[in-house]
Design a protein around this nucleic acid. Structure first.
Lengths: 343, 343
DNA sequence: GTGAAAGCGCTAACAG
DNA sequence: CTGTTAGCGCTTTCAC
């Protein structure tokens, strides 16, 4: 490059005006080339492109966003980035949005319901739209927030008119599972319930309430348990005392914990007792026996949220909430009822 | 508010000038109040604050970033957002950065090595720094990229001088594990290797090379296997043919797959054969028998990357790479060698 | 203590 | 087809 040392200073990134100067054209022309406006003389365009590539220029997304009033980026607010369930949803959103040329900004609220709204507002102000995954805040807070962050999608919470909604129908799911067990001949079924505050647990309870009403012939006894492997492991005495021939665990982890305990106790699954989980975690198919469970395509929930949200960004009319019913995966851990010796 | 209808139009967010007008002051004053400059008359400041709260004004982060030349945001580039391993690292980075008032922008490259650099560059231009988790691109590409995205941290890849590095010492880890088995009396050990291109697999292989050199008394036979549960499940014949009394699996999933198969075959673990995993996935402690494995605190790796990166952002000198050695978790799946009947 | 004005890097009319 | 100019919303000198 002759005597003009072109020193790439990493501290001071290239700007559009640098390119313009180097190419001997105006900023506007460079901008047009970058954005693929065909109205530029091909020779000039090529020269600009060459220079851009040569110096490795990348436009400032910040400036671009400010100027355009849009960032081609959406924000996703997650209560807990360490929870695999949210990951699946997140990934679904991410892939779907990426396919449409959108980037994703993820913010973890670290399970702090207080900070949720602030985080959401902040992130919304750098993005074009928001996805809230299972927000923890109270309903009034949520509604107030939604007024101000439109367009937004909410996953696994119901809202009024102000947001796109995608959610899993846990109510229906647990009933599907109960019905599966009833069909197998079980008439006394234990439900190992999860954390009390958990919304999805409440949904399951509501579903079972309905099921009891429509099936007076089957008894469903609720045993407060928890959401972890250990909780399931510890639940054995209560299950035994309940005299149930089949168990629906709050989730797969609980089911697996119980199954582990049953193995230790020498109780056969499903011959002596049937055990079913919920969520269909990857491991469910590898346990022994393989676990019957309810599968939810969380990725699809996320993708759906994005699709509806995108419509919203483009100004389409509000869609109905998308509701996803879990589907039954029958595997080896549930079987027909058979009278058995006292445990 | 008299006859001046203040209609909150969700389409047109509040700007600083709106607040200024409402408070009867200048933009500059509002800005000063927001940023906590003490030079503002307390009465005015209070009035401004009240109005901000009342109308729910939140400054545009985009404009702020452009003006300040900094966004208080870092970008994290992940090869695959669905991989739990990366999640742990991501979470470590996230928590540590959040504690320092930084937000995190996550970009998934969807395992596309081609697009990686572009994604990194783009995201870097909306953020103050970059974290690359286990980038897939070639070394020359990586080095070239790092020149242009400084400051950056790289996880699980070595680099030259241009980035902070945090990595897991798989070489040492696998040797620790081999030594554990040798101490138990095993002298013929199988290593179920993972994907060939996997860098961490290559690290393990290199570690075993060293181990062989320093321990001629133990034979380590490598069996190309894979990284999934099924791969482990399928590996049984090869393991048997190798005549090994102990197995080191590429990771926990593979180990668990093999253990499942062994159960089917009626082979006892660890009485007949010892099996060890790698990674210490949450499930490792719940399998039966509980899995001996190498634990890596991935969250800490991420947190460390952030700490060093932060120094870098603040202009401190380059730190040495942070290297994390996996630690041995002895559980029930490995035991002393005992001669046994031919399998 | 407060306001006016310039500027962060880019895009988009509007002229020519 | 290309350049000039006026913002995008905020921060920050520099005067007052």
């Amino acid at each position: 490059m002759g005597n003009k040392r072109i020193r790439k200073n990493p501290v001071r990134p290239m700007r559009i005006s640098d390119i313009a100067r180097l190419a001997g054209v105006s900023n506007a022309t460079v901008s047009r080339v970058i954005n693929g406006f065909s109205t530029v003389n091909e020779d000039i365009a090529q020269r600009v492109r060459d220079i851009i590539k040569e110096v490795g220029y990348v436009p400032s997304q910040t400036a671009r966003s400010l100027s355009l009033g849009a960032s081609q980026t959406i924000g996703v607010v997650v209560p807990d980035l360490s929870n695999p369930m949210y990951h699946e949803v997140l990934r679904g959103v991410h892939r779907a949005a990426a396919a449409d040329g959108y980037r994703v900004l993820v913010a973890d609220t670290l399970e702090d319901p207080q900070g949720e709204a602030a985080v959401a507002l902040d992130i919304r102000h750098r993005t074009d739209a928001l996805v809230l995954i299972a927000p923890r805040m109270t309903r009034p807070e949520l509604l107030a927030l939604l007024m101000r962050v439109h367009p937004a999608a909410v996953i696994n919470r119901t809202t009024g008119e102000n947001a796109v909604v995608a959610r899993v129908d846990y109510e229906a799911g647990i009933q599907t599972l109960a019905e599966h067990l009833r069909t197998l001949g079980h008439s006394r079924i234990a439900f190992l319930s999860g954390p009390e505050q958990s919304r999805s647990n409440q949904d399951r309870q509501r579903g079972l309430e309905q099921y009891r009403a429509s099936h007076p012939d089957v008894e469903i006894v609720e045993i407060p348990t928890g959401s972890g492997f250990d909780d399931g492991h510890r639940s054995w005495e209560a299950v035994r005392d309940a005299g149930a021939s089949a168990v629906m665990a709050f989730n797969d982890l609980v089911a697996l914990g119980l199954i582990g305990r049953l193995a230790e106790e020498g109780i056969r699954v499903p011959e002596d007792i049937s055990v079913a989980g919920f969520d269909n975690i990857p491991f469910a198919q590898y346990s022994s026996p393989a676990l019957t469970t309810m599968a939810v395509d969380l990725g699809e929930v996320g993708a759906s949220a994005w699709r509806d949200l995108r419509q919203e960004i483009e100004g389409a009319e509000r869609r109905e909430p998308s509701v996803f019913a879990p589907v039954l995966r029958v595997r080896a851990s549930t079987g027909p009822y058979s009278a058995r010796v006292e445990l």
